[in-house]
Amino acid sequence: MEKSSSIEQPSVNRPPLNSPVKPKSRQMKSLFYKVKNSPYLFILPYATLFTLLIIMPVLVAVFLSFTYFNTVQFPEFVGFQNYIDLFTGDTVFLQHAVSSTLLYAVIVGPIGYMMAFFLAWMLSQVPHNVRTIYTVIIYSPSVTGPIMMAIVWRVLFSGDQVGYLNYWLLEWNIIKEPVQFLQSPEFLVPVMIFVGLWGSMGVGFLAMLAGLLNVDKSLYEAAYIDGIRNRWQEIFFITIPSMKPQMLFGAVMAIIGTFNASGIAATLSGGTPPPQYAGWLIVDHASDFGFIRYEMGYASAVTVVLLLIVVLFNKISYKLFGEKD
């Protein structure tokens, strides 16, 4: 019996050589690389935290601002009643909280911002070892916070002869009796602003210092060849334009820091609220209604108004220091 010279092979459905269909292993591998190199995967941790810690609290605050919520019962929808009461019936908010917050922000924000740039520029001119020591000294008040600084400054501005300022004013015969710096509204607000300026050298100051240290030195050489003759021209035409991102970051942090300040006047005066609501800030007002009176809906309306004010001032800072592109 003759054996067949060829063995029949089972038929296999193979794709043509020029077929666009890839084997499953190559498809899975390609999909894996696409997912692995996707930019969305890199921003996923940040997006998750930003949603949980920023977006969700803001949305909850906006929702609660339209309700009456005493933290015990379920929120009761009241529409715009909280905002109507806030702008038509709350004299403390309109006459004290808003005015004090704007005054504090307008003075402490720009002056603290300019001080941060000036001190950072001065430190950029000194050697590294000395710069590190001075940086820690200047930055340390912002670490303790304005409230801790207010506690420290109470000793200086105390309203009796024990207070350092009253003691020296009496010794020099400038005053005849101790001045109540922390109980008089006309003195309490300037003291609060002074304390705020003392503790305003925060993260924005460090960002400006880092920006100053990373400006390309060759730009200064080229600028002097082109006609710059002094340090002021060097700062305005080379330094500030070269560190706009750091300047913008410092401006945003200054705005957030000043509008987020709270409890300084109450800590200085030793009582809540401070005398005649002097130095009463918007965050103090929200904390009073939210954590003392337990009117979370009304307190949420106060925080929403504060958020809109902060967004407005941030828009102004982006106009000044943001890139046009």
Rank of each mutant, 00 (worst) to 15 (best):
F259N: 06
A261R: 01
G263F: 13
G263E: 06
I264V: 15
I264W: 05
A265P: 04
A265V: 05
A265W: 07
A265L: 05
T267H: 03
L268E: 01
L268M: 04
L268I: 06
L268H: 04
L268N: 01
S269R: 11
G270D: 03
G271I: 06
G271W: 03
T272F: 15
T272C: 00
T272K: 13
P274I: 07
Q276T: 14
Y277K: 00
Y277N: 14
Y277S: 06
A278I: 05
A278P: 08
G279A: 11
G279E: 11
G279M: 14
I282V: 09
V283Y: 02
V283M: 10
D284Y: 07
D284L: 01
H285Q: 07
S287L: 12
D288H: 15
D288T: 13
F289T: 01
G290S: 14
G290D: 01
G290C: 11
F291H: 09
Y294M: 15
Y294G: 09
M296Y: 14
M296T: 12
M296E: 12
G297I: 08
G297Y: 09
G297S: 09
Y298H: 09
S300L: 09
S300K: 05
S300P: 03
S300H: 03
T303Y: 04
V304K: 00
V304L: 04
V304Q: 12
L307Q: 08
L307E: 08
L308P: 07
L308I: 15
I309V: 15
V310Q: 11
V311W: 13
L312C: 12
L312V: 13
L312A: 15
